[in-house]
């Protein structure tokens, strides 16, 4: 069933003008769907406004941060809901957030810090930031990229 759904979605995307800014939300939504199917944890993609067209490099890091956030959320104990949101940023850039409501506790030795550091380095080359915040509400990974050249 989900395969049929994916096949149709891909076909429709190929038929409509499949520009990258249209493809990105579809891809992020697909990551959320497969995360929910794999883990049984409710996962939702939310787009908070139109995002300007992005080049391949920016698109790639947005997807990479979403994947990293989802991998981390899977490790966190007690997460009941995960949200991936994509939004325009005030200065014409773009921001992506992966938030879960787990305790943020990871199994011993799981060490997720390295992935986030590498993403932060990649984002820095584009003038952006990656930040991981853990508090009583859960865990939030956030990427902010400034407007492209």
């Amino acid at each position: 069933m989900s395969e049929a759904s994916r096949a149709l979605r891909e076909a429709l995307l190929a038929l409509s003008d499949s520009s990258p800014e249209r493809a990105l939300p579809v891809e992020l939504a697909e990551h959320c769907r497969s995360f929910a199917a794999r883990t049984g944890v409710s996962c939702r993609f939310v787009q908070l406004g139109p995002v300007a067209p992005l080049d391949a490099e920016r698109t790639a890091i947005l997807v990479a941060v979403a994947r990293e956030g989802l991998v981390n959320a899977e490790k966190h104990a007690g997460a009941g809901t995960v949200i991936v949101s994509l939004a325009p940023e005030e200065s014409g850039g773009v921001q992506l957030t992966v938030a879960d409501d787990g305790t943020g506790e990871t199994p011993a030795g799981a060490g997720s810090g390295l992935g986030v550091r590498m993403l932060a380095d990649r984002a820095a080359l584009l003038g952006g930031t990656v930040r991981l915040v853990q508090d009583e509400d859960g865990c939030t990974l956030r990427l902010v990229l400034p407007a492209g050249p």
Binding site: R44, V46, L48, T81, I83, D101, D137
Partner: peptide, 17 residues
């Protein structure tokens, strides 16, 4: 909702976001 992440999910489901 029990927490902010769940609230965001529910708000999105309701077409609010």
């Amino acid at each position: 909702a029990r927490n902010r992440v769940e609230a965001i999910g529910k708000a999105s489901e309701a077409g609010l976001l």
